[in-house]
Computed example of a mutant assay.
Amino acid sequence: MISNEPLRIALIAGEHSGDILGAGLIKALKQHYPNATFEGIGGPRMLAEGFKTHFQMEELAVMGVFEVLPKLFRLLSIKKQIVQRFIANPPDIFIGIDAPDFNLRVEKLLKAAGIKTVHYVSPSVWAWREKRVFKVAEATNLVLALLPFEKAFYDKHNIPCAFVGHTLADELPLEDEQTASRALFDLSATDKVLAVLPGSRGSEVTLLSEPYIQAVLLLKAEIPKLKVLVPLVNEKRKEEFLAVATKLNAEEIFTFVDGKSREVMTAADAVLLASGTAALECMLLKRPMVVGYKLKALTYHLVTRLFKFNIEHFSLPNLLAGKQLVPELLQNDLTPENLAATLKPLLEEDQTALKQTFYEMHKSLRLDASKQAALAVSNVIENKHD
């Protein structure tokens, strides 16, 4: 169905992965509403689709209790301003993309003011503090879930939810494209290549760079010809990582790449990365990986003391599989020695069986997610959802 109504559609994305989802959704919504305008908070990919941002997306890209505190007043100010703007001039629908700590608060206020709201990317209510699901219901007319087990969770609680698949599963090829990617970086078919992705947030790069770099130094001692590529999302993240590498006298062993994380992962034999969307992307690229993550010590202490977790794994490949397919090293287990020990077999042993498992998982998520999400949003706009 195509409508020529000049709709105003508001969206907020809080980080790089949300920007990717937002751009795909905007593009798909234009097929339903060619005269629609799009505004809110977004990143460069959304801007490229004609989106108007009222604040810089980077301002929302913080996580962890103590990491948020220094920026709390600014975050509250942004929330107040954006809510006032949309209540004073209501959009036809508001879509919060991920960033649940920020977006659900915005959605709740807008929904109370009579504005239809959708939350794209389920918060991890299935993992911890399960009763938060009712706060999600209070804030939204519909949740768009990327993963099948999330849809089942919402159905159990009778909360409107649509499983749309994942845009990355649609974008990435089912077949391996390593040869072409290696050519981009002057790598041969016989080179041993490790990709290192320390995260897209400043707090992640700050905490993860040192153990990651120390692990690479250990690996280089055992695999001297190992080539190590580090794609970083922007110059600021590069400066943060390079500062740690320089401190450890290790800057010469890395090849830095501006962006192009997808191509770097495809070129690699194995990948070391932070948790999150990057782990899913790595799985879809059929690359063996080690997922290593940590929070600031006090943040981790508070989180684990205050909240009960209902999951055995924290990386998306393992959550999707319902078992451990890839090694996970969290907090105190994230040591250079552990990282090196789990990466070494991925670089030296045959991983065909794991890659085939990733292939089958890829197919299960390939649903044309942006199209499915746009259809679900249009149903809310047209009052086909509560």
Score class of each variant (00 low, 15 high):
residue 50 G to H: 10
residue 251 E to Q: 03
residue 62 V to L: 10
residue 49 E to R: 00
residue 117 T to V: 14
residue 357 T to C: 12
residue 131 K to I: 09
residue 153 F to R: 07
residue 91 P to V: 00
residue 322 G to K: 14
residue 99 A to Y: 11
residue 150 E to N: 04
residue 68 V to I: 11
residue 359 Y to E: 14
residue 317 P to A: 01
residue 270 A to R: 13
residue 190 T to L: 15
residue 33 Y to Q: 00
residue 233 V to G: 04
residue 116 K to H: 06
residue 299 T to D: 03
residue 336 P to S: 06
residue 21 L to P: 06
residue 252 E to L: 00
residue 267 A to G: 11
residue 207 L to A: 03
residue 266 T to K: 10
residue 221 A to F: 15
residue 11 L to T: 15
residue 46 M to R: 03
residue 34 P to S: 02
residue 232 L to G: 05
residue 374 A to V: 01
residue 355 K to S: 06
residue 312 E to L: 01
residue 179 T to I: 13
residue 292 G to H: 06
residue 217 L to Q: 09
residue 358 F to Q: 06
residue 296 K to L: 06
residue 113 A to N: 08
residue 44 P to I: 01
residue 73 F to P: 02
residue 324 Q to K: 05
residue 127 A to H: 11
residue 102 F to V: 03
residue 99 A to V: 07
residue 52 K to R: 14
residue 313 H to A: 02
residue 96 G to M: 07
residue 149 F to L: 01
residue 297 A to F: 14
residue 214 Q to C: 07
residue 4 N to T: 08
residue 159 I to R: 08
residue 62 V to R: 03
residue 175 E to L: 07
residue 222 E to S: 15
residue 330 L to V: 15
residue 119 H to W: 09
residue 23 A to L: 13
residue 115 I to W: 12
residue 301 H to S: 00
residue 332 N to A: 10
residue 275 S to T: 09
residue 291 V to A: 09
residue 109 L to P: 04
residue 205 V to T: 14
residue 112 A to R: 09
residue 152 A to Q: 02
residue 130 E to P: 13
residue 269 D to Y: 15
residue 208 L to C: 05
residue 342 T to D: 00
residue 229 L to V: 00
residue 67 E to F: 14
residue 173 P to Q: 04
residue 275 S to C: 11
residue 327 P to T: 05
residue 15 E to A: 09
residue 177 E to V: 00
residue 180 A to Q: 04
residue 39 E to S: 03
residue 51 F to C: 08
residue 189 A to E: 10
residue 68 V to W: 13
residue 137 A to G: 00
residue 116 K to D: 08
residue 63 M to Y: 11
residue 252 E to R: 08
residue 336 P to R: 06
residue 132 R to V: 15
residue 228 V to R: 03
residue 331 Q to L: 12
residue 11 L to R: 12
residue 337 E to I: 09
residue 261 S to I: 12
residue 102 F to S: 01
residue 199 G to M: 12
residue 23 A to V: 12
residue 78 I to M: 14
residue 39 E to F: 11
residue 45 R to E: 06
residue 178 Q to R: 00
residue 213 I to F: 03
residue 156 K to N: 10
residue 34 P to F: 05
residue 110 L to P: 03
residue 314 F to K: 02
residue 238 K to R: 08
residue 220 K to V: 14
residue 345 P to R: 01
residue 282 C to N: 01
residue 340 A to C: 05
residue 218 L to G: 07
residue 312 E to T: 02
residue 159 I to S: 07
residue 142 L to Y: 08
residue 338 N to S: 07
residue 313 H to Y: 10
residue 67 E to Y: 15
residue 300 Y to D: 03
residue 121 V to G: 06
residue 111 K to I: 00
residue 130 E to N: 12
residue 249 N to Q: 00
residue 90 P to S: 07
residue 258 D to M: 09
residue 286 K to P: 12
residue 110 L to I: 04
residue 2 I to C: 02
residue 82 I to L: 15
residue 284 L to W: 14
residue 343 L to Y: 12
residue 112 A to M: 02
residue 90 P to W: 10
residue 257 V to Y: 14
residue 209 S to W: 09
residue 227 K to T: 05
residue 73 F to V: 00
residue 245 A to W: 10
residue 128 W to A: 13
residue 94 F to V: 01
residue 353 A to E: 13
residue 378 S to G: 05
residue 138 E to T: 06
residue 91 P to C: 07
residue 61 A to S: 01
residue 298 L to K: 06
residue 70 P to Q: 03
residue 263 E to Q: 11
residue 37 T to I: 10
residue 214 Q to A: 04
residue 23 A to S: 11
residue 136 V to M: 15
residue 194 L to Y: 15
residue 1 M to P: 01
residue 173 P to D: 00
residue 3 S to L: 07
